[in-house]
Write a protein that binds this DNA or RNA. Structure first.
Lengths: 238, 238
DNA sequence: GTCTATACATAGATAGAC
DNA sequence: GTCTATCTATGTATAGAC
């Protein structure tokens, strides 16, 4: 397959290009969170609010991913952000709300980016490749978010837990749909659609769950992406 | 490949046979824990101690896997086991010790079973197959243990965390060694040994981390095992 | 061996001064 | 908007009766 752009190689989008295209700075994410939760957040000056939200989410993710959300006390969070306990409660009304906001925003961004990236492709093979690569790249850009979402799914309220499960199945569904279409077109052939999609997801999740392992071996996200595409295509290409 | 036993199919050991061979009842595991920690456990009547240890570990795993070890209070544990707070502290001296005991025992059993199962095979292809299948079957038998170990690795002490990482790499090492030997013998061919082993591990872990998903779809551990072996062999067979 | 009662620390959350 | 001070609940852990 020919390269589509000077900074792509063998049809694989480069990580840096992806990064620029999706352009997800922490500040932009926090701005979205702010606009989405204007009613709940007591601070009305947008600039102040966003700057502190960045601090709060960065600190929450850092502390939680180190020792768990439940083990992170609000006093820890207070120290890490430089904000007092009282100030923190101007940005969220309970610890549960804090975790819900993070999860909700993470899901929103993931669904949107994946959807956009796949829409650009047409044929099933290209769609599958883009789905795999953009999922890996996104989990690299938003690593703390992805790790957090996986590890803290248990601590959610019933309502939020239901949403988390829906989200897991939705992502898997994207792969199921691509696989089915490729199968109908005679391009793909495999024994079981659900299992194939599940295995793809498992491999994608390992990237952010075992980051320490890959980092210590010098495996880049691009290396991993090429390998995974190869691995999967080897199994399903007719 | 011919079946080696009346209850094996196409060279795959059946789950029930594995279960009988390894014979890991909760009581036996707790007996081993008791003998291993005789100095720390204050109760000297073996029968009493083991019966209560079964209660304690069952309850700890159930509660922790539901809402996290840190979120499980000792009052929760007291209620679930029917033992008082005071009684609990006759079996462990702190919450940290409790989590350490569970992790240590889980690792011990896993290493031993995997080692035994692989020793029975000779050729690399058979070795790989046995490694995959016995890992899946073991994680099915000890599901709460495996889930707990994955989720609670963060909460460990430095010393225990080091052991957990070693254990992860040890298991992966088993696959690396088999892959290398197969490669040398010209039976296997693949682009990267470490990545191949990592991907196999990722797929094995998904079985116990996403158990709800597979259960809801009626996928049995045998279905999954056959699929994974197929998936992996498709990639590596020369 | 197991219980009850309790000590002591730390958690989440809020009120009111600035 | 942010801080300090403080309330109340809940946590781990232990002492001593039975």
């Amino acid at each position: 397959m020919a390269a589509r752009s000077s900074d792509d190689v063998r049809g694989y989008m480069r990580f840096n290009r992806f990064r620029k295209i999706v352009a997800l700075s922490r500040e932009e994410i926090c701005r979205e969170i702010y606009l989405q939760n204007r009613d709940r957040i007591k601070i009305k000056k947008e600039k102040v609010a966003i700057a502190n939200l960045v601090k709060i989410f960065n600190a929450t993710l850092a502390l939680s991913n180190k020792k768990g959300f439940h083990a992170m006390s609000l006093r820890d969070l207070s120290k890490e952000t430089g904000l007092s306990m009282g100030a923190l409660y101007s940005y969220f009304s309970s610890k549960d709300e804090l975790v819900d906001i993070i999860q909700t925003q993470g899901r929103r961004v993931t669904a949107q980016v994946l959807h956009d990236q796949i829409a650009h492709a047409d044929r099933p093979r290209e769609k599958l490749r883009r789905a795999i690569i953009s999922h890996l790249y996104l989990s690299e850009v938003l690593y703390p978010w992805f790790y957090f979402s996986y590890m803290e799914a248990r601590n959610l309220s019933k309502k939020q837990l239901k949403k988390a499960i829906e989200s897991e199945l939705l992502t898997e569904r994207i792969f199921v749909d691509i696989l089915k279409r490729g199968s109908e077109e005679g391009i793909f052939a495999f024994p079981d659609t659900n299992l194939t999609a599940a295995v793809i997801k498992a491999v994608l999740q390992d990237w952010y769950m075992k980051r320490w392992k890959y980092a210590s071996r010098g495996t880049s996200v691009e290396d991993y992406a090429v390998f995974v595409v190869d691995f999967v295509e080897n199994f399903i290409l007719a």
